[in-house]
Protein backbone atom coordinates (compact mmCIF):
# COMPACT_ATOMS: atom_id res chain seq x y z
CA UNK A 1 0.00 0.00 0.00
CA UNK A 2 1.37 3.39 -0.80
CA UNK A 3 1.89 6.22 1.59
CA UNK A 4 -0.89 8.47 0.33
CA UNK A 5 -3.54 5.78 0.65
CA UNK A 6 -2.25 4.87 4.06
CA UNK A 7 -2.42 8.45 5.25
CA UNK A 8 -5.92 8.87 3.85
CA UNK A 9 -7.03 5.80 5.74
CA UNK A 10 -5.39 6.88 8.97
CA UNK A 11 -7.03 10.29 8.78
CA UNK A 12 -10.41 8.74 8.04
CA UNK A 13 -10.00 6.59 11.13
CA UNK A 14 -9.46 9.77 13.11
CA UNK A 15 -13.16 10.63 12.74
CA UNK A 16 -14.67 7.74 14.71
CA UNK A 17 -11.87 8.08 17.24
CA UNK A 18 -12.67 11.72 17.89
CA UNK A 19 -16.39 10.98 17.94
CA UNK A 20 -15.84 8.37 20.63
CA UNK A 21 -13.51 10.65 22.54
CA UNK A 22 -15.97 13.55 22.51
CA UNK A 23 -18.85 11.33 23.52
CA UNK A 24 -16.86 9.93 26.40
CA UNK A 25 -15.70 13.31 27.66
CA UNK A 26 -19.16 14.74 27.25
CA UNK A 27 -20.72 11.93 29.26
CA UNK A 28 -18.12 12.07 31.99
CA UNK A 29 -18.27 15.84 32.34
CA UNK A 30 -22.05 15.67 32.72
CA UNK A 31 -22.13 12.67 35.04
CA UNK A 32 -19.70 14.16 37.51
CA UNK A 33 -21.63 15.23 40.59
CA UNK A 34 -21.73 18.97 41.04
CA UNK A 35 -23.54 21.82 39.38
CA UNK A 36 -21.32 23.85 37.08
CA UNK A 37 -23.97 26.50 36.68
CA UNK A 38 -24.36 26.87 40.42
CA UNK A 39 -20.60 27.22 40.68
CA UNK A 40 -20.43 29.70 37.86
CA UNK A 41 -23.33 31.86 38.94
CA UNK A 42 -22.03 32.16 42.47
CA UNK A 43 -23.66 31.55 45.84
CA UNK A 44 -25.73 34.75 45.81
CA UNK A 45 -27.36 34.14 42.44
CA UNK A 46 -31.11 33.77 42.44
CA UNK A 47 -32.88 30.80 40.90
CA UNK A 48 -33.96 32.99 37.99
CA UNK A 49 -30.42 33.98 37.17
CA UNK A 50 -29.33 30.35 37.33
CA UNK A 51 -32.17 29.36 35.03
CA UNK A 52 -31.28 32.11 32.58
CA UNK A 53 -27.68 30.95 32.55
CA UNK A 54 -28.77 27.35 32.08
CA UNK A 55 -30.92 28.40 29.14
CA UNK A 56 -28.18 30.52 27.65
CA UNK A 57 -25.80 27.53 27.63
CA UNK A 58 -28.49 25.17 26.41
CA UNK A 59 -28.37 23.15 29.58
CA UNK A 60 -32.14 22.95 29.80
CA UNK A 61 -32.21 20.65 26.79
CA UNK A 62 -32.04 16.84 27.05
CA UNK A 63 -28.44 15.52 27.05
CA UNK A 64 -28.47 13.94 23.54
CA UNK A 65 -29.69 17.25 22.06
CA UNK A 66 -26.99 19.10 23.97
CA UNK A 67 -24.37 16.75 22.60
CA UNK A 68 -25.61 17.05 19.04
CA UNK A 69 -25.76 20.80 19.10
CA UNK A 70 -22.31 20.93 20.69
CA UNK A 71 -20.90 18.71 17.96
CA UNK A 72 -22.58 20.77 15.28
CA UNK A 73 -20.91 23.81 16.74
CA UNK A 74 -17.54 22.04 16.81
CA UNK A 75 -17.79 21.23 13.13
CA UNK A 76 -18.70 24.84 12.39
CA UNK A 77 -15.81 26.16 14.39
CA UNK A 78 -17.83 27.25 17.42
CA UNK A 79 -16.45 25.30 20.34
CA UNK A 80 -18.56 27.01 22.95
CA UNK A 81 -17.62 29.39 25.72
CA UNK A 82 -16.39 29.26 29.24
CA UNK A 83 -19.11 29.42 31.85
CA UNK A 84 -16.95 31.75 33.89
CA UNK A 85 -15.07 34.08 31.68
CA UNK A 86 -17.42 33.79 28.70
CA UNK A 87 -14.29 33.54 26.66
CA UNK A 88 -14.60 31.64 23.39
CA UNK A 89 -12.98 28.22 23.70
CA UNK A 90 -11.50 28.42 20.20
CA UNK A 91 -10.08 31.84 20.96
CA UNK A 92 -8.58 30.68 24.25
CA UNK A 93 -7.16 27.52 22.72
CA UNK A 94 -5.57 29.48 19.89
CA UNK A 95 -3.69 31.48 22.49
CA UNK A 96 -2.83 28.82 25.07
CA UNK A 97 -2.38 25.73 22.99
CA UNK A 98 0.50 26.97 20.78
CA UNK A 99 2.40 28.01 23.91
CA UNK A 100 2.20 24.49 25.33
CA UNK A 101 2.91 22.92 21.98
CA UNK A 102 5.98 25.08 21.52
CA UNK A 103 7.28 24.23 24.97
CA UNK A 104 6.69 20.52 24.44
CA UNK A 105 8.19 20.48 20.96
CA UNK A 106 11.24 22.37 22.17
CA UNK A 107 11.66 19.89 25.00
CA UNK A 108 11.33 16.91 22.65
CA UNK A 109 13.82 18.42 20.22
CA UNK A 110 16.27 19.21 23.00
CA UNK A 111 15.93 15.74 24.48
CA UNK A 112 16.53 14.18 21.06
CA UNK A 113 19.37 16.47 20.09
CA UNK A 114 21.17 15.81 23.36
CA UNK A 115 20.00 12.28 24.10
CA UNK A 116 20.80 10.59 20.80
CA UNK A 117 24.47 11.68 20.65
CA UNK A 118 24.85 10.91 24.35
CA UNK A 119 23.43 7.43 23.75
CA UNK A 120 25.68 6.85 20.75
CA UNK A 121 28.79 7.94 22.64
CA UNK A 122 27.82 5.85 25.65
CA UNK A 123 27.43 2.81 23.43
CA UNK A 124 30.73 3.38 21.64
CA UNK A 125 32.59 3.76 24.92
CA UNK A 126 30.45 1.43 26.96
CA UNK A 127 31.63 1.02 30.52
CA UNK A 128 34.38 3.51 29.91
CA UNK A 129 34.71 7.08 31.06
CA UNK A 130 32.28 8.84 28.66
CA UNK A 131 29.62 6.21 29.37
CA UNK A 132 29.97 6.72 33.13
CA UNK A 133 29.74 10.47 32.74
CA UNK A 134 26.56 10.21 30.68
CA UNK A 135 25.07 7.77 33.17
CA UNK A 136 25.84 9.94 36.18
CA UNK A 137 24.48 13.05 34.52
CA UNK A 138 21.23 11.44 33.48
CA UNK A 139 20.81 9.78 36.88
CA UNK A 140 21.40 13.12 38.51
CA UNK A 141 18.72 14.83 36.52
CA UNK A 142 16.06 12.14 36.76
CA UNK A 143 16.63 11.66 40.48
CA UNK A 144 15.51 15.17 41.34
CA UNK A 145 11.88 16.18 41.00
CA UNK A 146 11.37 18.33 37.93
CA UNK A 147 9.70 21.17 39.84
CA UNK A 148 12.66 21.39 42.20
CA UNK A 149 15.17 21.49 39.36
CA UNK A 150 12.97 24.02 37.64
CA UNK A 151 13.02 26.34 40.63
CA UNK A 152 16.75 25.90 41.17
CA UNK A 153 17.54 26.70 37.56
CA UNK A 154 15.10 29.58 37.58
CA UNK A 155 16.74 31.02 40.66
CA UNK A 156 20.35 30.40 39.68
CA UNK A 157 20.24 31.14 35.97
CA UNK A 158 17.43 33.65 36.04
CA UNK A 159 17.57 35.57 39.26
CA UNK A 160 21.26 35.44 40.27
CA UNK A 161 23.13 35.02 37.02
CA UNK A 162 20.60 37.00 35.06
CA UNK A 163 21.30 34.93 31.99
CA UNK A 164 17.71 34.18 31.16
CA UNK A 165 14.33 35.67 32.05
CA UNK A 166 12.74 34.02 35.04
CA UNK A 167 9.46 33.38 33.32
CA UNK A 168 6.90 33.98 30.56
CA UNK A 169 7.19 33.46 26.83
CA UNK A 170 7.95 37.01 25.84
CA UNK A 171 8.47 40.33 27.63
CA UNK A 172 5.12 41.80 28.67
CA UNK A 173 6.03 45.20 27.29
CA UNK A 174 6.80 43.89 23.83
CA UNK A 175 4.42 42.52 21.26
CA UNK A 176 5.11 38.98 20.11
CA UNK A 177 5.75 38.17 16.45
CA UNK A 178 2.64 38.22 14.23
CA UNK A 179 0.77 35.00 14.78
CA UNK A 180 0.93 32.41 12.04
CA UNK A 181 1.51 29.14 13.87
CA UNK A 182 1.42 30.60 17.36
CA UNK A 183 4.87 29.14 17.98
CA UNK A 184 6.94 32.24 18.65
CA UNK A 185 10.17 30.63 17.47
CA UNK A 186 8.59 29.73 14.15
CA UNK A 187 6.59 32.93 13.74
CA UNK A 188 9.58 35.15 14.42
CA UNK A 189 11.58 33.29 11.79
CA UNK A 190 8.70 33.58 9.34
CA UNK A 191 8.66 37.31 9.98
CA UNK A 192 12.45 37.34 9.60
CA UNK A 193 12.56 39.03 12.99
CA UNK A 194 15.73 37.56 14.44
CA UNK A 195 15.67 39.79 17.48
CA UNK A 196 12.28 38.40 18.42
CA UNK A 197 13.60 34.91 17.73
CA UNK A 198 16.47 35.28 20.14
CA UNK A 199 14.20 36.78 22.78
CA UNK A 200 11.76 33.89 22.41
CA UNK A 201 14.62 31.41 22.47
CA UNK A 202 15.99 32.96 25.62
CA UNK A 203 12.61 32.59 27.30
CA UNK A 204 11.99 29.02 26.28
CA UNK A 205 15.44 27.61 26.89
CA UNK A 206 15.33 26.87 30.60
CA UNK A 207 11.71 25.69 30.83
CA UNK A 208 12.21 23.42 27.81
CA UNK A 209 15.46 22.07 29.23
CA UNK A 210 13.89 21.27 32.58
CA UNK A 211 10.90 19.71 30.89
CA UNK A 212 13.19 17.61 28.70
CA UNK A 213 15.22 16.00 31.49
CA UNK A 214 13.03 12.94 31.97
CA UNK A 215 12.81 12.35 28.25
CA UNK A 216 16.51 13.04 27.85
CA UNK A 217 17.39 10.25 30.24
CA UNK A 218 15.12 7.72 28.59
CA UNK A 219 16.20 8.67 25.07
CA UNK A 220 19.86 8.35 26.07
CA UNK A 221 19.25 5.00 27.68
CA UNK A 222 17.26 3.48 24.84
CA UNK A 223 19.70 4.79 22.22
CA UNK A 224 22.61 3.32 24.13
CA UNK A 225 20.93 -0.07 24.60
CA UNK A 226 19.78 -0.18 21.02
CA UNK A 227 23.18 0.86 19.63
CA UNK A 228 24.87 -1.84 21.70
CA UNK A 229 22.46 -4.44 20.42
CA UNK A 230 22.87 -3.37 16.79
CA UNK A 231 26.67 -3.17 17.11
CA UNK A 232 26.62 -6.94 17.68
CA UNK A 233 24.83 -7.60 14.41
CA UNK A 234 26.57 -9.46 11.64
CA UNK A 235 26.27 -6.65 9.11
CA UNK A 236 28.37 -4.40 11.32
CA UNK A 237 31.22 -6.90 11.31
CA UNK A 238 30.78 -7.35 7.58
CA UNK A 239 30.98 -3.63 6.93
CA UNK A 240 34.09 -3.33 9.07
CA UNK A 241 35.67 -6.35 7.42
CA UNK A 242 35.55 -4.79 3.98
CA UNK A 243 37.01 -1.53 5.23
CA UNK A 244 34.06 0.80 5.74
CA UNK A 245 35.37 3.47 8.15
CA UNK A 246 34.11 3.25 11.72
CA UNK A 247 32.45 6.65 11.59
CA UNK A 248 30.32 5.54 8.65
CA UNK A 249 29.57 2.18 10.24
CA UNK A 250 28.35 3.85 13.43
CA UNK A 251 26.92 7.12 12.17
CA UNK A 252 25.14 5.70 9.15
CA UNK A 253 24.61 1.95 9.32
CA UNK A 254 24.19 1.34 13.02
CA UNK A 255 22.47 4.57 13.99
CA UNK A 256 19.60 4.21 11.57
CA UNK A 257 18.89 0.73 12.89
CA UNK A 258 19.13 1.87 16.48
CA UNK A 259 17.00 4.94 15.89
CA UNK A 260 13.88 2.83 15.33
CA UNK A 261 13.73 2.02 19.03
CA UNK A 262 14.58 5.61 19.91
CA UNK A 263 11.73 6.85 17.77
CA UNK A 264 9.24 4.81 19.78
CA UNK A 265 10.50 6.35 22.98
CA UNK A 266 10.45 9.85 21.53
CA UNK A 267 6.82 9.56 20.52
CA UNK A 268 5.82 8.11 23.88
CA UNK A 269 7.69 10.89 25.61
CA UNK A 270 5.81 13.46 23.61
CA UNK A 271 2.63 12.53 25.46
CA UNK A 272 4.29 12.51 28.86
CA UNK A 273 5.93 15.85 28.23
CA UNK A 274 2.65 17.40 27.16
CA UNK A 275 1.22 16.34 30.53
CA UNK A 276 4.36 17.32 32.42
CA UNK A 277 4.29 20.74 30.82
CA UNK A 278 1.49 21.83 33.16
CA UNK A 279 3.83 21.79 36.15
CA UNK A 280 6.60 23.60 34.34
CA UNK A 281 4.16 26.15 33.02
CA UNK A 282 3.07 26.98 36.55
CA UNK A 283 6.62 27.53 37.71
CA UNK A 284 7.74 29.59 34.75
CA UNK A 285 4.50 31.48 34.40
CA UNK A 286 4.28 30.06 30.92
CA UNK A 287 0.94 31.10 29.41
CA UNK A 288 0.09 27.60 28.19
CA UNK A 289 -2.91 25.38 28.27
CA UNK A 290 -1.96 23.99 31.68
CA UNK A 291 -3.55 26.61 33.92
CA UNK A 292 -6.52 26.92 31.60
CA UNK A 293 -7.09 23.17 31.81
CA UNK A 294 -6.68 23.04 35.57
CA UNK A 295 -9.17 25.85 36.10
CA UNK A 296 -11.65 24.34 33.69
CA UNK A 297 -11.60 20.92 35.26
CA UNK A 298 -11.73 22.19 38.84
CA UNK A 299 -14.82 24.23 38.08
CA UNK A 300 -16.45 21.65 35.78
CA UNK A 301 -16.34 24.23 33.02
CA UNK A 302 -17.28 21.62 30.48
CA UNK A 303 -16.93 23.37 27.16
CA UNK A 304 -13.24 24.21 27.66
CA UNK A 305 -12.73 20.67 28.96
CA UNK A 306 -14.25 19.24 25.80
CA UNK A 307 -12.20 21.55 23.64
CA UNK A 308 -8.95 20.66 25.34
CA UNK A 309 -9.71 16.96 25.13
CA UNK A 310 -10.43 17.12 21.44
CA UNK A 311 -7.28 19.13 20.70
CA UNK A 312 -5.15 16.70 22.69
CA UNK A 313 -6.85 13.77 21.00
CA UNK A 314 -6.09 15.14 17.57
CA UNK A 315 -2.54 15.96 18.55
CA UNK A 316 -1.75 12.51 19.92
CA UNK A 317 -3.29 10.89 16.88
CA UNK A 318 -1.15 13.06 14.65
CA UNK A 319 1.98 12.16 16.59
CA UNK A 320 1.07 8.50 16.22
CA UNK A 321 0.50 8.79 12.50
CA UNK A 322 3.76 10.71 12.05
CA UNK A 323 5.62 8.09 14.06
CA UNK A 324 4.21 5.27 11.96
CA UNK A 325 5.12 7.09 8.77
CA UNK A 326 8.63 7.62 10.11
CA UNK A 327 8.96 3.89 10.89
CA UNK A 328 8.08 3.18 7.31
CA UNK A 329 10.65 5.65 6.05
CA UNK A 330 13.35 4.19 8.29
CA UNK A 331 12.54 0.55 7.68
CA UNK A 332 11.65 -0.54 4.15
CA UNK A 333 10.39 -3.91 5.41
CA UNK A 334 7.46 -2.20 7.10
CA UNK A 335 4.44 -2.14 4.82
CA UNK A 336 1.91 0.57 5.38
CA UNK A 337 -1.37 -1.07 6.07
Amino acid sequence: MNLRLYLARRFLMLAPLLLGLSLLTFTISRLVPGDPVGLAAGPQASVEIQEALRKQFGLDQPLPIQYLSYMRGVLQGDWGRSLYTRRDVTEALSVFFPATLELTLAAVLLATALGVPAGVISAMYRNQFPDHVARVISLFFVSFPAFWLAMIMQTVLGRYAGLVPIGRRFPVIMSPPPQVTGLYLVDSLLALDFAAFSIALNHILVPALVLSFGALASITRITRASMIEILERDFVRSARAIGIPERVVIGKYVLRNAFIATLTVISLNFGWLMAGAILIETIFDWPGIGLYAVHASLSLDFQPIMGITIVYGVLFSLVNILTDVAYGILDPRIRYG
Binding site: R233, F235, S238, I242, G243, P245, E246, R256, L330, D331
Partner: peptide, 23 residues
Protein backbone atom coordinates in the same frame (compact mmCIF):
# COMPACT_ATOMS: atom_id res chain seq x y z
CA UNK B 1 40.56 0.03 8.18
CA UNK B 2 42.67 1.12 5.23
CA UNK B 3 44.28 -2.29 5.07
CA UNK B 4 40.93 -4.05 5.05
CA UNK B 5 39.64 -1.70 2.39
CA UNK B 6 42.52 -2.25 0.02
CA UNK B 7 43.72 -5.76 0.54
CA UNK B 8 40.94 -7.77 2.05
CA UNK B 9 37.49 -9.00 1.24
CA UNK B 10 35.47 -11.07 3.64
CA UNK B 11 32.19 -12.91 3.45
CA UNK B 12 30.36 -14.81 6.13
CA UNK B 13 27.91 -17.58 6.72
CA UNK B 14 24.47 -15.99 6.73
CA UNK B 15 23.89 -13.56 3.85
CA UNK B 16 20.62 -12.45 5.42
CA UNK B 17 22.13 -11.02 8.57
CA UNK B 18 25.27 -9.74 6.89
CA UNK B 19 23.47 -7.14 4.79
CA UNK B 20 22.04 -4.09 6.46
CA UNK B 21 18.26 -4.41 6.18
CA UNK B 22 17.56 -0.66 6.12
CA UNK B 23 19.69 0.35 3.16
Amino acid sequence: QQFRARHLGMIFQDPTTNLNPLF
